[in-house]
């Protein structure tokens, strides 16, 4: 996993754009995304899956997301599908089964399509907007608070880890399997976790002093306009259409 990928294309710049995807209200967009992902997972027809993938890709481009960003994010995930694909294709020996190839392509298109949808969600609004939207979707407040705090402190821990890594390298650390290295990693994990607990105690005190009562306060989400509803309904109709079309094709 490469943490640089999150900041590589200056997420903030992408969030500030003003396309139809960026203007789409968060809750409506999240519901539409979830609906479409469920619809995609339900599909088995390769032509329909590839058509859906193409439509989502064009939609992402029309939202002003750069082609290189989309392409890079998809390429990063490609090795996972290759690792799974090789045994599916060659596990049964020669000749290669057409059915296995079709299954692999189906799974790959499903994975890539849902991946694109998740990219659209995080690149067309800020994490704060996602959090605000989720806060008004009847999600338990404890779960939302954990999500919000974990996201906030994630980057601090990543900085700590990168500093530790630099310190290790400057002390002639060699990246290889040995009992000493495992001990080092074990103690590093223990250190990170104890630091997490210590920080959490300070955070809790700070939150209590600001009136925390089990729920992190959020600003009101954007009002749902008729255009937002129309976009969501269109996605829902598209999802139902591809499912019905598949029934008709098969």
């Amino acid at each position: 996993m490469n943490i640089k990928l999150i900041n590589q294309y200056n997420l903030q710049k992408l969030h500030q754009k003003s396309s139809w995807g960026h203007r789409w209200e968060t809750r409506c967009k999240l519901i539409a995304t979830m609906l479409l992902i469920i619809g995609i997972v339900y599909l088995h027809s390769l032509p329909l899956l590839s058509l859906t993938f193409g439509i989502i890709f064009i939609a992402a481009l029309s939202m002003g997301l750069p082609f290189i960003v989309l392409f890079t994010r998809l390429v990063v995930i490609l090795p996972f599908f290759l690792l799974m694909g090789i045994p599916i294709l060659f596990g049964g020996g020669y000749p290669l089964s057409v059915e296995a190839l079709q299954f692999l392509l189906t799974v790959t298109f499903k994975g890539f399509s849902s991946l694109l949808l998740m990219i659209i969600v995080i690149y067309t609004q800020s994490p704060q907007e996602i959090f605000n939207g989720m806060a008004y979707m009847k999600i338990p407040s404890a779960l939302l608070s954990v999500f919000f705090l974990a996201y906030r402190y994630l980057f601090l821990f990543i900085n700590d880890l990168q500093n530790t890594r630099k310190a290790l390298i400057s002390r002639s650390y060699r990246h290889q399997f040995s009992k000493e290295n495992m001990k080092l990693y074990g103690q590093l994990a223990g250190g990170i976790l104890i630091k997490s607990i210590d920080t959490s105690e300070t955070v809790y005190k700070a939150m209590i002093s600001r009136g925390f009562e089990g729920k992190i306060p959020t600003s009101l989400p954007k009002k749902v306009s008729s255009i937002d509803l129309l976009k969501t309904i269109l996605v829902a109709c598209f999802t139902i259409s591809i499912i019905l079309l598949e029934g008709w094709l098969i």
Binding site: A142, F157, L161, I197, Y204
Partner: peptide, 22 residues
């Protein structure tokens, strides 16, 4: 809540570390 959140973040970050095997 803060403890679960921060441990969640801590575990997330530690799972980013790659451990060498050959």
């Amino acid at each position: 809540i803060p403890m679960i959140s921060l441990l969640s973040g801590g575990f997330f970050v530690f799972s980013l570390i790659s451990l060498p095997i050959g």
